[in-house]
Nucleic acid binder design. Sequence first.
DNA 1: CGCTTTTGACCTGCGC
DNA 2: GCGCAGGTCAAAAGCG
Length: 418
Amino acid sequence: MVFTGHNRSPTTTHFDQPETSDSKPIKEVDFFTDKEHDLSKMIESSAPTMDFDLNINTGLHLLTRNTTTDQSIFDHDVRPNSEQQRTKHQLAMVKADIERMTEENRWLKDALNRVMIDYNILQMRMASTMIHQKQGEEHNSINGSTMAPRSFMDPGFATSNTGVTDENDGSSSPGRSNKNCAVDQKLRRARVSVRARSEASVITDGCQWRKYGQKISKGNPCPRAYYRCTMAVGCPVKKQVQRCIQDKTILITTYEGNHNHPLPPAAMAMTSTTSSAARMLLSGSMPSSDGLMTTISASAPFPTVTLDLTQPPTPLHCHRTSGQFQLPFSNSGLQMSQNMQSPETCWQPPLHTQGTRHATLADTVTAITADPNFTAALVATISSLMGGDGHSNGNKNGENVNDINSNNNVRGNNKVSN
DNA sequence: CGCTTTTGACCTGCGC
DNA sequence: GCGCAGGTCAAAAGCG
């Protein structure tokens, strides 16, 4: 079975389908196209051709008005009988000025957006690099092998107790202790949770899902929806979707299990990102297997990695809180707040831009970056660009690619009502 | 008509 | 053993 990334249901709105983008409000957008560069290209192409200039006027365009206009307003040499004409003329001039300033503002906004995107891309690259470094160190020290690290969401690692790969690993690793095997057992139930701001009922991740249940959980009036992957018969991957009680604009998607089928490129991108998150659980922050156990069992029945796409950037810091990790590359700076750990965080401007940004610019940046799909797309795109790393994902052998947690996406026939 | 969603019932695990 | 909460099942309804 070959996935081309274009095998999408007509019911899903895609970013690369302009015919739907301007006709009605987009509730769900699939950014995970198979062309990872499309997003940046699109952004670039949408920006004005002017080169971004650091000396650019930051929006205080009221000072850049045509001085002749001002002069005309106070021109006392106008003929008395042309009072109306003069007023008309002034109006026209003011109108022209406004239009010109509007256009200039638009250009500036575009330029700012490009800079923001570049900034976030760099941040994500750094974070991803750190993750890969850590995972490499961890595997060298714990497994004593050079084998590529395997995400617990990889096939046979997360859910399969009979998988060949899993058994091989358990028995063929000479230095593996029973304790580590116990850890693996725990990790098999590991989950990846993705927090993102979205008005849609689900976030797009490239896979097909079918809803099989919904429950009101205690302490949260928002119902929790249960989905199952329907891309292949018997695929064990499930996901739960629930809104955050503190901030209902935040959608929490939790993935569990491994796909038993090849993934489309769109899902692979997300997979790469979430796999990195999963690996993080096994890497650096846990100096020993004991530490690993303690962390995992701290507060939840299953170890959970949280990809918080709503959190601020704090670059290069990986936060671990009671058994959960929060990776920094979330939307890295796109939606920022200083209160990293609090779920009820509200949007705040990036620290490095505070004090210099204009209210109007803030609005613009907010509007653009508030879209979790955009954020997720950035993460996935960068991840897949860098990674190539497909260690886990990769369907390099054509089959048996599972991995991930890639899930989040509702597409295809999967009609998820908003 | 086939597939998906909805939703109440049922199952299971856990704490007391 | 009991009750609670989370998770799943499955029949009915909805939709294209």
